[in-house]
Amino acid sequence: QEIVNPEAYIKHPLQNRWSLWFFKNDKSKTWQANLRLISKFDTVEDFWALYNHIQLSSNLLSGCDYSLFKDGIEPMWEDERNKRGGRWLITLNKQQRRQDLDRFWLETLLCLVGEAFGDCSDQVCGAVVNIRTKGDKIAVWTSDYESRDAVTHIGSVYKQRLGLPLKMTIGYQSHADTSTKSGSTTKNRFVV
């Protein structure tokens, strides 16, 4: 009789099922029509199968986004789980596309699928990377901008995981403020 080690054939389940979305900027179509669901996964192995199969963020055309959200949450402000939320925003300069973009995005994905924020991970909705000529952006979206303790815990763990210097600060903005702003900057609700 052969005894098989379950580690050899059972995939490692994640806490959540995740959906990866792709946005391609085609000005002849509506914003929603440009957004496509690529795939869903709920194991460590299936996460890597997808990640290893798709283009790195730094190879995408300007105007494209990847979004990774918990199953059932759409990557838009209007979703019920997002509309009272906000995002920790990382803005990158042009040099950082080559130096930092891909490793920051992978680290962001690992924080999400690995539930790196402990109990506060329940407030994480997803993350988005925007590829833009004027500067790329990465953001972690959470569900409630008024949950100060959870939001700041998520921000400080995230900043540490990205290896950002202590003297550098990152800001958290509510989607309500971002969607109603008049200028190019949105006020920070929190900074870490």
Partner: peptide, 20 residues
């Protein structure tokens, strides 16, 4: 409890042969 996986554990699976 929550299924939490740290980065090194997750990275260890990046190039594992696929499960069948």
């Amino acid at each position: 409890g929550k299924r939490q996986y740290n980065r090194d554990f997750l990275l260890g699976f990046q190039f594992m042969p696929a499960c069948v």
